[in-house]
Write a protein that binds this DNA or RNA. Structure first.
Length: 427
RNA sequence: GUGGGCGUAGCUCAGUUGGUUAGAGCGCCAGGUUGUGGUCCUGGAGGCCGCGGGUUCGACCCCCGUCGCUCACCCCA
């Protein structure tokens, strides 16, 4: 007699979001959308999969994301596609394709996919909120993008989030730095962890990001990129830092901050949630990319953007003990009907059409049962319709938030119920 | 890809040295007389004890495998 176990469940590393959790998601996305709008951004939507090249060009073929974590597949036409591992590349591809007037400011919310073992704050499908600005290298924009992210984190209640900033320099000055770093690493390679002792030549910058103690000991004494920027990059970075402090946004210089994608140049930043003791404590990050548009076949166009992981933001909120809802919404009325009269469906429809959030009970349950559901629904008022009301052309309206259970109700004519509720709601 | 922990009702979890009808709380459903919600009382539904194999007279319990979840390494949002 028992039902068989469900044969399907959400794939490893993915998850469903249902109410009441989904209200947090809705609130988070809504908050970000409104903030982005205030900053002059408009929504951009791009396909969830792209030609593999869109991602490999920018992210870098040596990056871990590309090498091991991409969801790559061929369609029936033997075209090679990949599910997007991050948001920026697709947006830049769209920019190159459509050539909107610059500066172009776009925000997005999208799932992102990476094939890796899931753990706290890391999933195979997660969601990112992000924003990009293309067509200007003005450091003012770097500051604006960071301010957008910073303000967003504050608005949703996060207080224990630190901003780390660094500059990667532009292509030429980074190249000369990498040479310098390589020389240094060559002298000290015996002191690095096994993984880097042989592998550092592939991507010397990666070593800076290593958290292993012995690697940290080596790189701490080595040359730092910020100390070897060319005059222009140095000036650009100084303007970003000055802009941030002018806005009262605290930041920490993180000379070892090297982000995972190869396309970054000049400004890079990361928001770290100290409330998260999990290994995954970066709730957002981004930076400037001066060559990505070109790599994707467009005219040389500088851009900057950031992305933030929704799941991690929610984890950070929970870790900080924030319980205030991001979305305040509740039902206005709950219709209780024991007659089954079709006119009740009409009443419900009239209320909803008039902008009144209305729910009702189904399956002709007892009045007591319906009232229990009404109570749990959180509705402000219950509208009761029994045989008596039906005959009289009236509705009993009951205040569900009144302390006094039996007195808080009155009879209202059916023809006036919609306007009565509307009037009460505007008070 | 590598390692640790865990899989018992919708949810959170008990389950005594393996012993026969597997429990609690919450949730859900129905009642507590005549049409009315938060508390209370009563009753009820709901479990291939993740799956497969093994040991045993007997397995939720022990062993092996498998799948899933979870945490960490790596890397990242």
């Amino acid at each position: 007699m028992s039902e068989p176990l469900p044969p399907f469940q959400a794939p490893t590393g993915t998850h469903d979001v249902l109410g009441p959790d989904s209200a947090l998601w809705e609130g988070l996305v809504g908050t970000f959308a409104q903030r982005a709008y205030r900053y002059g951004f408009s929504l951009v939507m791009t396909p969830i999969f792209e030609d593999v090249g869109v991602f490999t060009r920018g992210i870098g073929e040596e990056s871990d994301v590309f090498r091991n974590e991409m969801y790559v597949f061929s369609d029936r036409g033997e075209r090679r596609y990949a599910l997007r591992p991050e948001g920026t590349a697709s947006v830049v591809r769209a920019f190159v394709q459509h050539q909107p007037t610059t500066p172009w400011k776009a925000w997005y919310v999208t799932p992102a996919f990476r094939y890796e073992r899931p753990q706290a704050g890391r999933y195979r499908q997660h969601y990112q909120l992000g924003a990009e600005v293309l067509g200007t290298e003005d450091p003012t924009v770097d500051v604006e993008v960071i301010a957008l992210a910073h303000g967003f984190f504050r608005e949703i209640g996060l207080t224990r989030v630190r901003l780390l900033v660094n500059s990667m320099g532009h292509t030429a000055c980074r190249a000369s730095y990498v040479e310098l770093l390589s020389e240094y690493l060559a002298e000290h390679q015996d002191e690095l962890v096994d993984e880097h002792r042989e592998g550092w030549r592939l991507n010397p910058l990666r070593v800076l990001d290593c958290k292993n103690e012995s690697c940290v000991a080596v790189t701490a004494k080595g040359p730092m990129l910020v100390d070897h920027l060319c005059a222009e990059c140095r000036d650009h970075f100084d303007q970003v830092l000055a802009g941030l402090s002018a806005l009262g946004i605290e930041s920490t210089l993180a000379p070892r901050l090297v982000r995972g994608f190869d396309y970054y140049s000049r400004t890079t930043f990361e928001f770290v949630a100290d409330a998260l003791d999990a290994a995954q404590n970066a709730v957002g990050g981004g930076g400037r990319y001066d060559t990505l548009a070109e790599q994707l076949g467009g005219k040389p166009t500088s851009g900057i953007g950031f992305g933030s992981g929704v799941e991690r933001v929610l984890l950070a909120r929970a870790a900080e003990g924030i319980v205030t809802p991001l979305l305040k919404r509740s039902l206005d009325v709950f219709v209780v009907d024991t007659t089954g009269d079709v006119g009740v469906a009409r009443l419900v429809e009239d209320l909803r059409s008039a902008g009144v959030a209305t729910e009702r009970a189904y399956d002709q349950r007892s009045m007591k049962a319906q009232m229990k559901v009404a109570d749990k629904s959180g509705a402000r008022w219950a509208l009761l319709i029994g045989p008596e009301e039906l005959a009289a052309g009236e509705v009993t309206m009951k205040d569900l938030r009144s302390e006094d259970f039996n007195q808080a109700q009155s009879r209202v004519a059916r023809s006036e119920i919609v306007s009565t509720v509307q009037e009460l709601l505007t008070k």
